[in-house]
Design a protein around this nucleic acid. Structure first.
Lengths: 269, 269
DNA sequence: CGTACTGTTGATCAAAGTCAATTGAGGTGG
DNA sequence: CCACCTCAATTGACTTTGATCAACAGTACG
């Protein structure tokens, strides 16, 4: 068994596909050079190799449910009987402390597997909440259980996802601990931009982002007010534009330099 | 395939054994009620079911290397060709930023698998450094590769470990973001105590801990000076005693209450 | 016998939090 | 259609936590 590198969006698409194929209980040949076929996913369109299109369409129609804005669809403490794959819309993963304060520990974008490892735990340790309207595919624990036996490649794909999640978490920890407020803000925006790109949500240099400044503040460990000040400064430095549910990164390299952002952790595996 | 809960030290020992058995390329029957046999691991003694004892002893003798204090034995950026299991001594996982500042993102105690998921990445994103003298078993990537095919139970065991690592990382993030300095200090001590207990390092209410206040400070996102003040206060509150390479938790419940610590994430899976 | 590291304490300072208030957009019921 | 409400964004004034700077003692170590 050898692990292929998956540094490019193409490779990422390929491994997500492998995962989808597993879910559908039938193999899907993934050819990077196959002619891409546009899939009409409401809200965005994704280019996928031909065999994948049908598989993805089947998955979507079979398991998807719609989630209203601000709805908690994974409750901390509740048993994990299924795993969720974001199809459309954004979600936040929230840790709630004893005193009721909340901390966003992760964002989930379309294509993301929500905390794949949690299936093992049996109980969710954090909540997941849709930000805007969202569509989520719920995959049963039972379907996952055959994973290691039946579908080694899917298993690899899952591990990749879980490594990226862990590396991202580490990056957030370092971010929150070692950087100044404005660097934290810039770093978060860099990550969101890079991830939106991987999810093929970016149009030009901007993308739709339903997050409020409060969300960004919580994720970067700032107060809403201070995040507002930081965003203003980044705007004045002509690095980003933000508003109207749109987020635009005007000077990608300068923003990355401002935050000493290195997105390798998002694509390395 | 069903996942058994592993909430007790016994269960944790059992799953680590399963992992060791995999590494040795032969099955080891794990019976929780088998008569425990003490193993003479220099520095501490572990009680393990009989069949496991031989397996563990073989693993130790075959793959262990000694590491000097302050030695970096996993270098960030270097290729990951093997995975490390801590046998003896403590290690820190360190992220180094562009400007050279360092941040401890994890501690590794005896029995811990060091960042199992990193094997997939091919490249380490953080360094691992022995604190005091340590002994480490290096397991080849090749031995790991047969995992999913040959030994489903070991695969489960690995996943458990990786889930605990991810949950711990999340706990650190929440800790660093939402708690006051003294709570962070207390929370870290609670976690160290709980983990030392799982590693069977605790004697009475105290255990040997080679970490300096600087290490604790980095992990809790404080300066060394401020960590010192926090520790003094916790000492004055008769919650802990610390010094001489020993760490004693005098009032476990009070300390946990001080930090609103819930150790479920360490044992849940 | 210096040298380096850890632990310790005190004085000062700044980054970010807290509090307070205003604006404007969007939604809702009468 | 308008009064009313809620929520996000924004700005300013003030406060606090923990960082920074400085100094010193004890100890291990070459």
């Amino acid at each position: 068994v050898e692990w292929e590198p998956a540094a490019s969006p193409d490779a990422r698409r390929a491994y997500l596909l492998t995962m989808y194929a597993f879910v559908l209980d039938r193999p899907v040949s993934v050819q990077a050079d196959a002619p891409p076929v546009p899939i009409a996913t409401p809200g965005r369109s994704a280019s996928l190799p031909a065999p994948a299109a049908a598989a993805l369409r089947r998955l979507l129609s079979a398991n998807v449910r719609s989630v209203r804005p601000r709805t908690v669809f994974v409750e901390a403490g509740s048993p994990m009987t299924e795993i969720n794959v974001m199809i459309e819309g954004w979600a936040i993963r929230v840790a709630t402390l004893a005193d009721g304060t909340r901390q966003i520990v992760a964002f989930h974008l379309p294509g993301d597997i929500c905390e794949f490892n949690a299936l093992l735990a049996g109980v969710a340790d954090t909540s997941v909440e849709a930000v805007g309207p969202a569509r989520v595919a719920a995959i049963s624990r039972r379907a996952m259980a055959g994973l290691t036996e039946d579908f080694p490649r899917a298993s690899q794909a899952m591990w990749r996802e879980s490594w990226v999640a862990a590396a991202t978490q580490r990056a957030w920890l370092v971010n929150a601990c070692r950087r100044s407020a404005i660097e934290r803000a810039a770093h978060l925006l860099c990550e969101l931009h890079a991830r939106a790109e991987l999810a093929e949500l970016v149009d030009g240099d901007s993308f739709e982002c339903p997050l409020t400044q409060g969300h960004l503040a919580s994720a970067a460990n700032l107060t809403t007010e201070h995040m507002n000040r930081c965003l203003r400064q980044l705007r004045e430095e002509r690095l980003v534009e933000i508003g109207e549910g749109q987020l635009a990164v005007r000077d990608r390299n300068a923003l990355a330099a401002r935050a000493s952002f290195d997105g390798a952790y998002l694509t390395q595996v």
